[in-house]
């Protein structure tokens, strides 16, 4: 129960995959993994929400002799574990398209996980990377992982068709590239090109030049409609988060934290802020002209992700400082004031 609830909270994604029951193993629901910048936090939350226990992890690359539609996992995990799965032989933690599956406690346990729903999966895939995470105080282990090919053809096709519904991942805080849409192995532009050429052939009586140009406009229009749906959806989601909680994508609570620090700085001489879970570049801009500093030299810190707390002891990248919370923000971020003497 707990792991399912945590998964829903951590991800908030609606892409449900079909369960597949075979040979009495537990069938596991999977969801699309969140964007890269949220992944570590989501994993941590999914595994152990209450105590910020470090995770142990293991990575396996499964190579099947035949194309695989499912992965069978035997494991041992007294507190359950979370798996990230992505096609190919890379560490799924760093791939934009991955699936997230929460495994129930089991010593040992065995599950079968459908992998057809990860965008980029197609019938020919023979390798899948798996990263497994479990709490350090109840470490789990992968015992045996194998690929199986058990889905009938219509399920495969439906799964591949469903890939095009995957929302375009607008890059976090850097506009470098867009992933685009695929159906299995087929990029959507190639599919639309094919449709366009069919339209041109059907309309050739208007003359090939006009028919080709018309088909180009039609194909482009179809792609644009698909893309614009995601554009509107992303804008609406961003606007909701900003309006409701003052959070914005990868920056999370940083804007609110910066505002709160400005208020704090009026009362604290020589106030300077550090950050955990975010580099100092955006902090430096947002608090300008107030100064920033390293964790050990700061008077305050913006806590966004990746920090640990033991009583009043705050730990970021193994650096310890004593502190007190000034304010906690809706996205989970905190502004703390260091209470120990800084150098």
């Amino acid at each position: 129960m707990v792991h399912r609830g945590l998964l829903a909270i951590a991800l908030g994604l609606s892409c449900a995959a079909s369960a597949f029951d075979a040979h009495a193993q537990t069938a596991i629901d999977v969801v699309l993994a969140p964007p890269l910048y949220q992944r570590s936090a989501a994993l941590r939350d999914a595994v152990h929400r209450d105590a910020l226990t470090p995770l142990t992890s293991a990575t396996a690359i499964v190579r099947g002799d035949a194309p695989m539609s499912h992965v069978r996992v035997r494991y041992s995990a007294p507190a359950g574990m979370v798996l990230l799965l992505a096609p190919g032989t890379y560490d799924p933690l760093f791939l934009p398209d991955a699936l997230l599956a929460a495994l129930p406690p089991g010593v040992p346990g065995e599950v079968i996980i459908p992998v057809m729903h990860v965008p980029g999966w197609h019938g020919g895939i023979r390798a899948i990377g798996i990263a497994a995470f479990s709490p350090a105080d109840a470490p789990g282990a992968l015992i045996a992982v194998s690929g199986v090919d058990q889905a009938p053809y219509h399920e495969r096709w439906l799964a591949e068709l469903g890939h095009v519904l995957r929302t375009e991942k607008f890059p976090a805080a850097s506009i470098n590239f867009l992933l685009g849409y695929r159906m299995g192995a087929l990029p959507l532009p190639v599919l639309l090109l094919g449709i366009g050429l069919v339209i041109a052939a059907l309309r050739r009586r208007m003359g090939w030049p006009r028919a080709i140009a018309l088909s180009a406009f039609v194909a482009l229009g179809m792609y644009t409609v698909r893309f614009d749906v995601d554009l509107i959806r992303t804008f609406a989601a961003d606007a909701r988060a900003w309006h409701a909680a003052g959070t914005y994508g990868e920056m999370g609570d940083l804007y609110s934290i910066a505002d709160a620090f400005r208020g704090e700085a009026k009362a604290v001489p020589n106030a300077r802020i550090a950050a955990c879970g975010q580099t100092l570049a955006p902090v430096r801009y947002l608090v300008h002209p107030l100064p920033t500093a390293s964790w050990m030299e700061a008077t305050h810190a913006a806590l966004l992700r990746g920090w640990q707390q033991e009583g009043d002891n705050y730990i970021c990248n193994s650096d310890h400082r004593r502190g007190a919370v000034v304010q906690t923000f809706p996205g989970g971020g905190q502004l703390i004031r260091f209470t120990d003497a800084h150098p």
Binding site: E168, L178, L179, G196, W208, Y223, T224
Partner: peptide
């Protein structure tokens, strides 16, 4: 791959190639 299979340029590379083809065929 960037022009034909990824998302940054979507359909536009194919679109422009089709337009050049059409304009050549139309001798325009």
């Amino acid at each position: 791959r960037m022009f034909t299979a990824a998302g940054s340029f979507g359909m536009h590379a194919f679109f422009l190639i089709l337009l050049v083809t059409a304009l050549f065929l139309a001798r325009s």
